[in-house]
Simulated assay, not measured.
Amino acid sequence: MTDTAQQDENASQVDGGTKDAQEFGAEQNVLSLTARQKKLLDTAEAVRTRAPSELSFGIDFLAETCLPISDPGSDTRIYSRRNGKLYLEIQPAHIRNPDGSSEFVYPYGSAPRRILIWCITEALRTKSAKLYLGTSLKDFITNKLNISFGGAQMQTFRKQALALFRASISITTVDEKGSLIEDRFEDFHIAQHGRLLTHVGNKGNNPKETESSYLVLNQSFYERIVGINGKGGKAFPLDMRAVNAIGNDALALDIYLWTVLRVYRADRGTKSVTIRWERLHSQFGADIQEKKRFKQKFLKAINKVGILYPGLNFESDRQTFTLLPSVLAIEVKQAKGNARQLRATGTNG
């Protein structure tokens, strides 16, 4: 039985993306649609009718937990998220500024999420831990990430990229089995080393075509992506069209990654998964202290995700949220075919 109040606020959660898209369109005067709303609906139609020509990839632990959505602040020593027995902890990166000053910066918001998806996808494409980001940060953002931005945002992007690459990340699982306590942990940075060229002026010192920004992924992180010793990696496929349409909505992007992975793990979408709201708040709600407000924002975001993930079915009541049997976002055969194509066309340049 769904929560009646939430049904009124969030029309038809159970029927997934198709019905949501219809109702979304029905509630809007077509002439008053914003460019963003029109793009969302156009993308939803493309996702429903055509297989993706391009896949992107997420990684398991960041679909099960989340980066910060807003800035935790430099006074926050450790950012922590929990999903059951899995804990994600992040210590901020120490960023040096051109004037000699320094600051501690967390990776937060949509930018590091989009950068991370690109890094995972590129590592799978090239089968190399060394990733070339283009001639400059601007080249990387506009031509690799397909993000439009103003010049005033360059310094923010620089800090967010460096924060993602250099923050200390810890993944911990604590499991108690009778008299035995098992602690499994992994500590790493996303990048081992790299060079980031950022042009922030109007004249002079533009990067040369022969120069480039690059990134060498931490070996542990790289192996988690591509696998090692015959064992598969922990990356999973996403529809790049949905990622681009979600854009700067960090919460919706987190929920999209999470639903894609959870549906696949639920016996490839054949079983339901029921989760209490308290656990979802622990996983996704770092920036929303009030649980009632979190529930409202979560349902709003997942309805948006449902538009771009037409096979997704879910329902909720006052105590729990349930992912119902759903169609996989990316069919397994299709993902394997795209993976082979990625490897065949991979290049280190």
Rank of each mutant, 00 (worst) to 15 (best):
A44M: 10
G100C: 09
D99Q: 05
A63S: 15
V105Y: 00
T65K: 09
R77A: 14
D71C: 10
R77V: 13
S74P: 04
A46D: 13
T49Q: 15
V105H: 00
I69Q: 10
T65I: 04
L86P: 08
G58P: 03
G100M: 05
L67H: 02
S80I: 15
G84Y: 12
P52K: 06
A51D: 15
Q91G: 10
L55H: 05
G100P: 06
K39C: 01
F104T: 09
A46Q: 11
D75P: 02
T49H: 14
S101M: 08
N83P: 02
A51Y: 07
L86N: 10
R96G: 01
L40S: 00
V105S: 03
E89T: 14
P98V: 08
L55T: 04
T49K: 15
G100R: 10
A63E: 01
A51F: 04
P72H: 11
L88H: 08
K85Q: 14
L86W: 04
A51R: 15
E89F: 03
A51Q: 13
S80F: 02
D99R: 06
A46I: 07
S102G: 05
L40I: 13
S74H: 07
T49D: 07
K85F: 11
D75R: 07
H94G: 01
E89A: 14
R82C: 01
E54R: 10
K85H: 08
L62V: 14
D42P: 01
S56K: 10
I78A: 01
N83M: 09
L62R: 00
P72A: 10
F57T: 01
A51V: 02
L88Y: 07
I59D: 09
A44S: 14
A51N: 09
I90Q: 02
P92S: 06
P98Y: 06
A51T: 10
A93Q: 06
Q37K: 07
S70F: 07
A93Y: 00
D75K: 09
V105N: 01
I78C: 03
I78L: 04
N97Y: 05
